[in-house]
């Protein structure tokens, strides 16, 4: 299917590039369908683009780039998804003040199950996860977890594989 995203324009999303939110995201309860978009030159970041509202897109990155580590959730903690299959991505806020660091939404990582194409936001109590030490990109490996790659939409079409280790961030 072809979607029109405010940020990217028309984007071709194959069937295996569709993601469904199993439980509504707080503040965005009406949204269920998304695509995970990798833009050439923006590793290690990806976009979670709403398929229902064109302007809605969340910037995501793997928690490891912020020094964050999450335990494996019990299935019930992630709304019945297989906790052991979780591939975590965190939402990232770009501060308006450029002197401030990027902020990961560390209390609400997204647990993505590549097998089912579903994800859920796992909400943790503040004491259960350490505060991020700041953005520290693991420049040796900017690629996403291999399990996510088959469900990634690359934009623009034909861009280099996001699995490549060509760093888009000056180390």
């Amino acid at each position: 299917m072809t979607i029109y995203a405010s940020r990217f324009g028309p984007v071709e999303v194959p069937a295996n590039g569709l993601w469904q939110c199993r439980q509504p995201l707080a503040g965005f309860e009406e949204l269920r369908d998304f695509a995970l978009i990798q833009v050439a030159g923006q590793s290690p970041f990806v976009w979670l683009q709403s398929l229902e509202l064109q302007p809605i897109a969340f910037l995501l990155a793997e928690p490891r780039h912020f020094g964050l580590q999450y335990p494996r959730p019990a299935d019930a903690e992630v709304s019945g998804l297989a906790g052991a299959a979780c591939q975590f991505l965190v939402m990232v806020t770009i501060p308006e003040n450029k002197d401030e660091p990027l902020r990961p939404h560390h209390l609400g990582p997204l647990c993505l199950d590549p097998g089912s194409g579903e994800f859920v936001q796992w909400v943790l109590e503040p004491g259960r996860v350490a505060v991020s030490a700041g953005f520290r990109p693991q420049t040796e490996d900017l690629g996403l977890a291999p399990a996510l790659l088959p469900r990634l939409v690359r934009w623009p079409d034909g861009s280099a594989s996001p699995d490549s280790r060509s760093a888009s961030i000056a180390a």
């Binding site: 940020r7 809605i56 806020t93 770009i94 609400g108 909400v123």
Partner: peptide
């Protein structure tokens, strides 16, 4: 969580590119 989600939504155009 809701406020964090809203802050992470739709950064200004080219904000990431500039960053």
């Amino acid at each position: 969580i809701r406020e964090g989600n809203q802050q992470a939504n739709a950064p200004a155009d080219l904000a990431l590119e500039h960053w």
